[in-house]
């Protein structure tokens, strides 16, 4: 047990088992991206040969790429896990979208509020998330077991001390814990592990000719006809791929010819742009992620 990946893997499995042992009703948030893929793979290992003893849940903004939905259903089926899909119906009825209302409102209503609705509705007392500490500055201070009050809010100044591998999962009714088993993984670790373990990935991570438009300074792939185009704007076919996957109109693609996992990893090692630059959401304000997390965003 010398390699850092083996140690990170052991740590994550320990955390996942701890949750299964101590909580009444855990759930694993599944976002279809590569971090979710690694987390799901770790959960399968933790309980092998049994399937993981909790459901997967996808908070669906309805703005994901079509490839992602297909992939999601396949992964849940193969893992032998129940899949819960939740959409904020109210938000959908109000026609909330990022074009009209901006990414801030869209994210709040269709992701943050939707997640809170689902957690309350199903009475989950623990929810796994695939967040990593290297993603963003406020994440670096988050615990592995992150306490949320009855309103699902995070108080960064009042976190429980976390020592050794001893996690305190005690909650009162209505309170919950967000659990981040891959806290200590970096983006490169995720890629290496995905390669070493041959974990399936959504095809969008690999370069292909796709119809793109420039929107807000980013390359946006037009996945369906909901994308509003400027008069005269025509999507052009370019060889692009994604470093990170969110709602398609919010996720910028990068020009690339990397069509295999090895080529993708190669690009990552050479990367000079950090991963979250592809996400419009982080640029809103200096400490915007901290603010969203306080309110209950993952």
């Amino acid at each position: 047990m010398n390699s850092h990946l083996a140690m990170l893997e052991a740590e994550a499995i320990h955390i996942i088992r701890e949750v299964a042992a101590e909580f009444e009703r855990p759930v694993m948030l599944y976002s279809i991206g590569k971090d979710s893929g690694v987390m799901l793979h770790l959960a399968k290992k933790a309980f092998y040969p049994a399937p993981p003893p909790f459901p997967l849940m996808h908070i669906d903004t309805t703005w994901k790429f079509r490839d992602m939905y297909t992939f999601r259903d396949r992964m849940a089926r193969e893992a032998g896990m129940e899949l819960i899909v939740h959409t904020n119906q109210e938000g959908l009825d109000q026609g909330i979208n990022m074009f009209t209302h901006g990414s801030r409102v869209h994210t709040d209503v269709m992701k943050t509020q939707a997640l809170k609705q689902a957690l309350t509705h199903y009475g989950f007392d623990a929810a796994f998330g695939g967040a990593r500490r290297d993603e963003e500055r406020s994440r670096a201070k988050e615990r592995v077991f992150s306490f949320r009050d009855k309103q699902h809010q995070w108080d960064p100044k009042n976190q429980r001390p976390e020592l050794w591998d001893l996690y305190n999962g005690r909650v009162h009714k209505g309170e919950s814990i967000r659990v981040f088993p891959i806290s200590n993984w970096t983006e490169l670790d995720i890629w290496q592990y995905t390669y070493a373990e041959d974990i399936p990935m959504v095809p969008l991570y690999f370069a292909a000719e796709r119809p793109v438009v420039e929107y807000d300074g980013q390359l946006i792939v037009v996945d369906d006809d909901r994308m509003p185009l400027e008069p005269g704007q025509v999507p052009e076919m370019r060889s692009v791929r994604f470093r990170t996957l969110g709602c398609y109109p919010l996720t910028g693609a990068m020009e690339s010819t990397a069509t295999t996992l090895l080529e993708v990893i190669e690009e990552t090692i050479q990367a000079t742009q950090s991963e979250r630059q592809g996400r419009a959401i982080d640029k809103d304000a200096g400490a915007s992620m901290e603010e969203k997390k306080r309110q209950g965003y993952f």
């Binding site: 850092h4 500490r133 100044k157 490169l188 400490a287």
Partner: peptide, 30 residues
């Protein structure tokens, strides 16, 4: 780069444990 929370930046002090990562050709560091 290291003082992550808004209140820390405002006060110019680190108030909580933060985890950072870097690596060399032979070793990953936390």
């Amino acid at each position: 780069l290291v003082d992550g929370l808004q209140s820390e930046r405002e006060q110019g002090i680190t108030i909580d444990v933060a985890y950072r990562f870097f690596s060399t050709p032979t070793r990953k560091y936390i």
